[in-house]
């Protein structure tokens, strides 16, 4: 995907020069390998810092919330779905945006790669679908497919759903992937086993809220966890408080989550936070036939009322 970089630069320079947008939101190289950082380019010189490779896993829709002015944004499949969600939720107007669509072949998982090697990784280079990871005294080349983030392996919307211009040719969508395999596995457990599964899952959580900050859906001016009047949830490390935070966070994403994986990517402890949002996505799909962020003209299921809405849970 590195070949997109030049095209992205060319488009960005053009839309900035034409005055179509005031800035372009993209990625630039981070200070450590595999950690590209968001970059807001406002001039031709700063556009030159833009890059595109398999380390652009963060979701750029996070940076357009309530922004004034016109913005160019580089969007892979999931970013574009989150942009659609933002437009639906009135967090930005569609005509403020110039969306540079990037067909995506998946992002690589820095947690997975770091866990493969004992010593520090100094460079990660990409060429086609081969990734070369090297550090002091070692260098290994692997297939990108093996290193993908988990959400990318089950992604069915690699191409952007909404864009003004593409930075590359559309890629083939993955078919025959079981998006909800991990959820189905947990569903088959008993209540106690489920409880223990999630206790274990969350035990490393340090309540840093990186998952919330990385999430484009989490844009409340004051998050419920930061509020102290009223205090919705305890601020301690008690497992009850940790779990309450995660359940509420996930529930706030119900019917909105695009499974972009930014939360998992941002988690310093490598917790599989998507286990929660995945279940809600599955429910939305099964109960309402809904996948978030696919159309600008459709209201989300939790925002509408239909007489045939499922109501088995209520007596």
């Amino acid at each position: 995907m590195t070949e997109y970089t030049d095209k992205i630069k060319e488009i960005s320079k053009r839309v900035l020069a034409e005055g179509r947008v005031e800035m372009v939101i993209g990625f630039r190289k981070g200070s450590v390998p595999m950690m590209n950082q968001p970059h807001l380019a406002t001039s031709a010189e700063s556009v030159d810092e833009l890059v595109w490779d398999s380390n652009c896993g963060l979701n750029l829709a996070n940076y357009i919330t309530d922004k004034k002015g016109t913005i160019g944004i580089i969007a892979k499949g999931c970013d574009s779905r989150n942009i659609v969600t933002h437009v639906i939720e009135n967090k930005i107007k569609r005509d403020q945006l110039y969306i540079i669509g990037v067909p995506c072949t998946g992002m690589i998982d820095h947690h997975k790669i770091n866990a493969m090697f004992d010593s520090e990784i100094l460079t990660v280079e990409e060429s086609g679908d081969q990734i070369t990871i090297s550090g002091n005294g070692f260098s290994e080349t692997k297939d990108k497919q093996e290193l993908l983030q988990e959400n990318c392996t089950v992604c069915t919307h690699r191409n952007p759903v909404e864009y003004d211009e593409l930075a590359g040719n559309l890629v083939e969508e993955q078919k025959n992937v079981d998006q909800y395999a991990s959820v189905t596995k947990v569903e088959s457990l008993s209540a106690d086993e489920k409880w223990n599964y999630f206790e274990d899952l969350l035990s490393p959580c340090i309540r840093c809220y990186a998952c919330r900050n990385a999430c484009p859906l989490c844009y409340c001016p004051t998050c419920f966890v930061d509020e102290s009047r009223p205090q919705w949830v305890g601020k301690s490390q008690d497992p009850t408080d940790v779990k309450t935070f995660h359940l509420l966070r996930a529930y706030h994403c119900a019917g909105r989550c695009t499974d972009c994986g930014a939360c998992e990517r941002a988690c310093p402890m490598g917790i599989k936070i998507r286990e929660f949002t995945k279940k809600l996505n599955k429910d939305c799909q099964e109960l309402y036939g809904w996948e978030a962020g696919l159309s600008l003209d459709e209201r989300p299921p939790l925002d509408t009322f239909k007489t045939d809405d499922p109501d088995e849970f209520i007596k």
Binding site: K194, L280, D283
Partner: peptide
């Protein structure tokens, strides 16, 4: 669905 998925026993939570 969600609470029961995370390990609350069916029968604890009721809506009416």
């Amino acid at each position: 669905n969600f609470l029961e998925h995370t390990g609350i026993e069916p029968g604890r939570l009721h809506f009416s």
